[in-house]
Computed example of a mutant assay.
Amino acid sequence: MSAQLPACQLLERYYGQAAQLWPVAPPEDAWLLNHSAAMVSDSVALRQQWQASDRLALTPFEPVNELPTDQVVLFWPKTHQLGMWWLAWLCHVLPANTPIDIVGEHQGGVKRVPKVLSGLGMVCDKLDNARRCSLFATRTVVMEAPDSAWETFDALDIRLVSHPGVFGHGKVDEGTQLLLQALETALPKKPLKVLDMGCGDGIISAWLAKRGHAVTAVDVSAFAAEACRRTLLANELEGTVLESDVYSALEGEQFDVIVSNPPFHQERDVSYGPSTRLINQASEHLNPKGQLILVANVFLPYPEKLQRAFGEFNSLADNRRFRVFRALK
């Protein structure tokens, strides 16, 4: 794990080494892991870290059967709508008047929390601030389940269902559009077994399924996986959708094509870890003569990674901002 994050440094300063927390939407942090018996996260990668340390890890889409006895701490996400969703979720699943603390970095928008809490009729006390982070205290109020956060919109003749925090929420990004244009001519007309790595709201999966391909979609985020399932259902399309930390849920399964618009951000930090594993391990999950097709911002170092992993690759499309790469097994 990386060095202790500023928000967790603030928690250590406030709670001390005796801290026992119940983090919600936490970051990856060794101190936090060691000071929590349970957590809730949409990230299967983070849940697996907690589970590997014999700690309870829940998704927001499963029931909370055991109420927390430790201090609940919500890590305020950079996406404001997602922070609102987590607050509503906590108020729905926990008894009224349950103490909740909220922590986050100033550049991530945590300074908006007092106004958000006031608008929801929730109390707010500022507990501490340091390391350009703030810590607030509040208590739950009675709320309905936050289902209204799901957003449905149409794009490219597909009905998309999305959720705050999912990549491309509410729109189809330019890179994905360039990728789909390239796939239109790059893929043969016969049905293929295709893996959509990092499926997001399911735009690529639905596009492929409409053209008769057998699609498996994976994403590290439970929000994204659920959005993809809802998108496929809304378009009366079939596909397998799994939560997976890159290839972790695929157990050696192989495909004719792996397609991806891989992420390179974790909150505000640049991270090439997932995309590097996507490229380096692709051959293990490709059938003979299979192909990896991905789109990326032109400034990202993917040509070097593709060269090392495959030896050869080519460019299918380039609009000066994004480039579509193809590598053959």
Rank of each mutant, 00 (worst) to 15 (best):
G168H: 02
T79Q: 15
V172E: 02
D54K: 02
V166T: 07
R159P: 00
K193Y: 05
N287Y: 08
S205Y: 05
R211W: 12
E236I: 02
G200N: 07
R159Y: 03
C133E: 12
S315F: 08
P99D: 13
S134M: 09
Q281T: 05
D128G: 06
D154R: 02
G200R: 01
A45Y: 13
S271E: 07
E312N: 12
A222V: 03
V166Y: 07
A37N: 11
L135T: 02
R229S: 14
V142E: 15
A3Y: 12
A30P: 00
N235K: 01
D219T: 03
L5R: 14
D70N: 13
V123D: 15
V24S: 04
D42A: 13
M39N: 04
D219I: 04
R47K: 12
I158W: 00
L232G: 04
Q107F: 07
I279A: 10
W31S: 08
H35L: 05
Q20L: 14
Q107K: 14
R323S: 10
T79M: 06
V116E: 13
G104Q: 07
P6W: 13
A214Y: 06
S283W: 00
L56P: 00
V324S: 08
F313T: 05
H92S: 11
Q281R: 08
C133Q: 08
I204G: 01
Y302T: 07
A96W: 01
D173W: 04
H285F: 11
V166D: 05
S148F: 12
G121A: 10
S162R: 01
F61T: 10
Q254D: 06
G165D: 03
T98K: 03
